[in-house]
Amino acid sequence: MTETVLVTGGTGYVGGWAIVALLERGYDVRTTVRSLAKGDAVREAVGDPGERLTFAAADLLNDDGWDAAMAGVDYVLHVASPLGDESSKDPDALIVPAREGALRVLRAATNAGVRRVVMTSAANAASPASYAEESVTDETLWTIDDPSLPAYRRSKTLAEKAAWDFMASYDGPTELTTVLPGAVFGPILTANNVGTTQIIQRMLTGKMPGAPKIGLEVVDVRDLVDLHIRAMLAPEAAGERFLGTGEFVWMREIAQALKAGLGAQAGSVPTRELPNFVVRLASITDPSLKAITVSLGRRNRHTTAKAERVLGWKQRPAAQTVVECAESLIEHGVVAG
């Protein structure tokens, strides 16, 4: 019999690519959406596979629908992020939905006897507390929860911790594995959801006056999904964390890769690096910049040696990922060619 995988958040950027990859590998896929009315858009984005893709109405902020969503499921890829209020000054607006959403999925999965849940966390959940620190860290490190840290980073750390604490008190067949990605770029499936590729979109449209000195560990969305599936299947992945970061590149290097790969189509991409003090001054009036000021000039990196050794995982070069991301944005009409 064909195995069934539940993917949380089928309308999401990573969720959509997870559906595509699982269908290509011969699985039946069920995906959660907040409203079944969104099903047609998901089918169109992933290339309508007929009855092999089904939908369940379930919201990470509500208990309703989760038991039905898990019925008959073999594996779960919990890649969805709940819609917290990122503009709120209250960090709990992000932290509580992320933590409670993870626990909701795990409760339903363990009740249904699912074999394994693979949950998406973030590399920021395995990073040093000090932003001034330059180091290479692995999965053994847990980010220390500190109210001074950005709420998003705290939400990912606390949600993953809550998941592991839940499993520590659980005595049953369901297993948990977590994947901790870096900055997720790559092609999009639909113009209706550009996900984290908004950064590349902003660079292509000239909405950034320059490149802040921010370093990103770029991972291709297709490689990230491949890591999730490897973590889902490998017996030795049970109960483990796996970093899924990629090559470390500065924003200026991303801009240069876009220029080299796209030529005239990258005419609006800024390649000059903005001095740190300029970004800090701009953040006074631009709230969207405040979250990144703490990362200016920081070169903390993560090693993916464990995923490579245990799961045989490989990543493509960052330059290839960002160029193919940009080409996809242009092809889907998100950015004018």
Rank of each mutant, 00 (worst) to 15 (best):
R252N: 07
W250R: 08
I292P: 07
R299K: 15
W313E: 09
G267R: 02
N300A: 10
K314D: 04
H302L: 13
H228Q: 07
A282Q: 02
S268Q: 07
A237L: 12
E273V: 06
R309K: 15
V323W: 03
A255C: 03
S295L: 10
S283T: 00
G297E: 09
V279L: 05
E273Y: 00
A234M: 03
G239A: 08
L258P: 03
A307D: 14
E273S: 00
E236S: 07
L233F: 02
E236I: 03
P287N: 09
V269M: 01
S268V: 00
Q315P: 05
A257K: 14
G239T: 11
F248T: 00
E253F: 08
M232K: 03
I284N: 05
R301K: 09
L227M: 06
A231Q: 07
M232S: 03
R309D: 09
R241Y: 04
T321W: 02
E273M: 02
R272F: 15
G239P: 13
E240I: 04
A264K: 02
A264P: 08
Q320Y: 13
L311D: 11
R316S: 00
E308S: 14
V249D: 07
R299E: 08
S268G: 00
A266M: 14
R298F: 02
S268C: 00
V249F: 03
G239M: 06
V279T: 03
L258I: 09
P287E: 10
F242E: 11
P275W: 00
K259L: 03
V269A: 01
R280I: 01
P270G: 14
A291F: 13
E236M: 01
R299P: 00
S295E: 11
A318E: 06
L296V: 13
K306M: 12
V278H: 00
L243E: 06
A307R: 14
V279W: 03
